[in-house]
Amino acid sequence: MPPLKELAKRPERLTSGHRLCAGCGAPIAIRLILAAADKPVVAANATGCLEVSTTIFPYTAWNIPWIHSAFENAAATITGVETMYRAKKKRGEIDEDIYFVAFGGDGGTYDIGLQSLSGAWERGHRFVYVCYNNEAYMNTGIQRSSATPLGAWTTTSPVGKVLPGKTQWRKNLTEIAVAHDIPYVAQSVPSNWRDLTLKAEKAFHTEGPAFLNVLASCNRGWRHLPADTLKVNQLAVDCCIWPLYEVENGEYRLTYKPREKKPVEEWLKVQGRFQHLFSPAYRYLIDEFQAYVDREWERLLEKCGETKK
C-alpha cells in the first residue's frame, strides 16, 4: 500500500457536495476504499442512503461510471457489468484493466440482497462487494434489519411496555460469506483507516469475489453526536463487538487485537438506541449481549489461531 500522502493524492472518486448527513460513516468508508484502488473502478450501488444522497438528479457526486437499478440486486447488476467487460475483452473491444465494486447497506446486503449476492459469489465473478453496515434501514428512517444488534431500539423494534427493542441477535454475514469459500472476506471499520485501506487494496487485487463488511455508524439511527462517529465505531472494535479480521483463501487472520478488551457497556452507553438497556428491567440484556460477544470472540480467536494452548 502506498503511504497515506500518496493515497491522498489519488483522484476523488466520490466528491464532496453529496448530501449524506454530517457524521455519516458511509462516505468515509467509501472514499477510503476507492482510494485503495490502483486502477479504474466501475461501481454499482444498491438503493439506500449512499445512492439517494449522491445522485439527486441532475447532480451526481460520482466521478466514476456508476449504476443503481434497484435495492436487492447490486450484486447481480455489477456481475452483469463485469461480464460485459469480459465479453468485450475477449472480443478485443476493450483492453484496460478495470475493478468492479458494489456498495450496499446492511438492508440491501444482509436482508433483501442476500440471494443475489450469494448467487454472484457462487458464480465467482471478479468484483468487490462492500457492505457499509450501519445496522438498520437508515434511509427509510431507522427500521431494524438482520444486522441490528440485540436490544437496539429502532422504529420497527421500538421499546415498549413488553418489548425491549430488538429481541434477536444479528446475523453473522461475514461467516456466511466465508462459507461461500470465496477468496477474500474481511471485516473492517473506517476508524482504522489503515486496516480498511489495506483490506480494500487486497479485495481489489483478488482474482474472484471479495467481500468487505464495514461497520459504518449512522449517528441519526444510533443516536450519538455527529462528531463521535469514528470514536463510536472504534469502540465497537475495542469491545470486540466488531472484530477486525480477514479470511484469505480460507485462512483466518485477526488484523487488530485490542490491547484491553472493553466491556460492551462502553459501546452501548454512548448510543441513544441502547439507553433503555440501562434500566433495571432490561439490564439482563446487557449481560446476554456480553455473553454473546464473548462467545463469538473466543470462537474467532480460535479460528485465527490466537488462542493460547
Binding site: S69, A70, T79, G80, M84, R91, Q115, S116, G119
Partner: peptide, 26 residues
C-alpha cells in the same frame, strides 16, 4: 457462440444482470 452466459440464481437477477450488461454497452 462466444457469448458470455450468466447462469443467475433467479429471474430478478437475470434482468438485473442484463441491465448491468446492457448499460456496460453491449
Amino acid at each position: 457462440v462466444d457469448s458470455e452466459f450468466i447462469t443467475v440464481e433467479s429471474e430478478h437477477s437475470a434482468m438485473s444482470a442484463c441491465i448491468g450488461a446492457a448499460a456496460a454497452g453491449g
